[in-house]
Design a binder for these strands. Structure first.
Lengths: 149, 149
DNA sequence: ATATCTGCAAACAATTTGCAGACGC
DNA sequence: GCGTCTGCAAATTGTTTGCAGATAT
């Protein structure tokens, strides 16, 4: 989904909730759409400050939560209190593979795994609403680098 | 694995690292083995205090990290900074299903999912060292309760 | 004997909150 | 104009750290 469409959707979402469309909220949305990678709350605050008349740290945090609740962003929890955000609207659901050496994040999607998860849920009479799957290990580059040593 | 065996293993582990076997460390290990559920650092600190001559909060945190590094405990990250621990030594690897209403945690193991993960990793020349899979949704009880309303 | 531990309280990092003034509707 | 939002700074939460005295080896 392109930034404009996302913006229109966000405005509609806010109105639907009886919330105001503010410069600060739109700025955070726009910045979230201007990267295709993952970012932290603090990084977003940094981008906002670079823009000059930005938004406060509190507003950045409040807006990020708002965007996650509205399914505009997804939050990927990485232990030690680190949370990575990424925009998802219009993107296919995917899981992550994270390199423990260089931090590289690769995305993947596997339909068989998805189906098996649903099956497991069904077996336990569990109503599945979301899931998170993260593979941790070492990427091809780092493996090669280590082998070279 | 029974508590005594875990304790012997822990003592050997400590010696191997040139670390001391202390009353506090053994207490945390023993308490971790005295529950079969998941617990937080703060809960562990509570149990330790109930024992009277316990251990300080700092020591509890230090020991929990030590136990995770030594693969005596596993840490399950639940957003919002919450970390749940459980003892794993001698237990089969498993994933979790968490009820968003009542907090119930169910464990499951699915060999096909495990294998597919390995396959995905292989396709990306990724060396898999661990993974975490959590399903979120609503358990049978809570679904029934909601339907009744 | 000596190096590692522990307990304490202070430091920390990430995030949240209360409140007065600003601003979207 | 009314009610929501923002910015600020202070509060909170969960965890880590420095250091002096205690303890395991």
């Amino acid at each position: 989904m392109n930034p404009d469409a996302a913006r229109r959707r966000f405005e509609a979402h806010l109105r639907h909730l009886g919330m105001r469309v503010t410069r600060q909220r739109l700025m955070v949305l726009e910045l979230a759409w201007s990267t295709h990678g993952h970012f932290t709350a603090e990084q977003m605050y940094g981008w906002v400050r670079e823009r000059g008349s930005g938004a406060s740290r509190a507003t950045v945090y409040r807006t990020l939560s708002l965007l996650v609740e509205g399914d505009f962003l997804s939050a990927l929890e990485r232990g030690h209190g680190q949370v990575l955000y990424e925009h998802i609207l219009g993107h296919q659901h995917h899981d992550h593979m994270i390199c423990l050496d260089c931090g590289l994040i690769m995305e993947f999607h596997n339909e068989s795994i998805e189906r098996l998860q649903e099956e497991v849920a069904r077996e336990h009479a569990f109503e599945l609403s979301s899931h998170s799957l993260t593979l941790e290990g070492h990427c091809a580059n780092c493996r090669a680098a280590r082998a070279a040593r």
